[in-house]
């Protein structure tokens, strides 16, 4: 099912967004192929929300290009019918019931599957007639996701959907999402500042830090490209010459390196280990936190 030849559902090139003097997103070039569930990971303030809003056409870029489902995002019915967007605050009309929202969706969308929402809510025991403001956070999130899916979108953009949920609600939400994705034809980009929320469900990763893209690609490929090296404290210039050093931890006795490798590592002094997704993400985030990152360390845009 996953192949590098899958057509791109999201493609951005040198995308930037400034709010007056603040750069919310800088030089962002990403590709998300069809059928992926992509994790948009990054610390708070990294530009995740900005990117999602640009992709949904809710905000306009100040630089660069975006293609979503083959066109530039714009607020017209043809484009909007293809995407589902769920904002972080889960905005719904608090005084209205779930049934009211289902009816609103039917009025505002040419393609609308209200029955699926009813079935989902009945399955979860969420009352249809009660004002949405009186539902729990988890119930509201489930309702919002069901409503978003009822449009039968080809791309789902979710902004921190599970951040405010308890573990059970989080699991139910993600299961709901995974089930929708299993139907096929759906690409998902969901943001979080916690990788652990998304690790199981995502097969693609976009890592943002400091308003820039640090990593973008299929998780399996990214993991295979990177390696952890553990060895004695010694000169690592040879390794750094052959490979791209992402992050290094040096103690008086020991050196731990996270590298993006170009070919096999041949240095008997170092023990090699596979990198976990968490180590990979933390490595790139740590690199950013240490100071401004040299451009060539960005995994994006053909750094080889």
């Amino acid at each position: 099912m996953m192949a590098s030849s899958d057509p791109a559902v999201i493609q951005t090139r040198a995308l930037s967004k400034r709010y007056r003097t603040v750069a919310a997103l800088t030089d962002c070039t990403i590709t998300v192929p069809e059928g992926r569930i992509s994790a948009l990971i990054g610390p708070n303030g990294a530009g995740k929300t900005t990117l999602l809003r640009l992709l949904a056409g809710l905000a306009r870029p100040t630089g660069g290009d975006i293609a979503v489902l083959g066109t530039a995002p714009r607020p017209d019915p043809a484009f909007l019918a293809g995407i589902g967007f769920l904002a972080q605050e889960i905005p719904l009309y608090r005084r209205m019931s779930a049934a009211d929202h289902i009816r609103i969706g039917a009025h505002l969308n040419a393609r609308w599957d209200g029955t699926s929402v009813r079935q989902r809510l009945e399955g979860l025991g969420i009352p249809l007639g009660q004002a949405v403001g009186t539902l729990s956070g988890g119930q509201r999130a489930q309702l919002a996701l069901a409503l978003t899916l009822a449009k039968r979108p080809r791309l789902l953009l979710l902004d921190e959907p599970v951040a405010a949920l308890d573990p059970l609600a989080r699991r139910q939400f993600l299961a709901h999402l995974a089930e929708a994705a299993a139907g096929g034809g759906l690409t998902v980009l969901l943001s979080s500042h916690l990788l652990s929320d998304l690790e199981r469900i995502c097969d693609h990763l976009v890592l943002l830090a400091g308003s820039r893209v640090q990593l973008c690609g299929d998780v399996d490929a990214l993991l295979a490209e990177h390696q952890i090296l553990v060895g004695p404290r010694k000169d690592t210039t040879a390794i750094e010459r052959d490979h791209t050093l992402v992050h290094a931890v040096r103690t008086p006795r020991q050196t731990t390196l996270l590298i993006r490798r170009n070919g096999p590592v041949i240095d008997p002094a170092f023990e090699t280990a596979d990198v976990s997704l968490e180590e990979l993400v933390l490595g790139y985030m740590g690199q950013h936190a240490d100071g401004p990152s040299p451009a060539h360390l960005s995994a994006i845009g053909g750094d080889q």
Binding site: P75, P77, L80, F85, P91, R94, L108
Partner: peptide, 16 residues
């Protein structure tokens, strides 16, 4: 203020 504009503006209806 409440963000419901984002809900409405991502249904299949133009903002205008």
């Amino acid at each position: 203020e409440t963000g419901t504009a984002q809900f409405a503006w991502t249904q299949s209806i133009s903002r205008s």
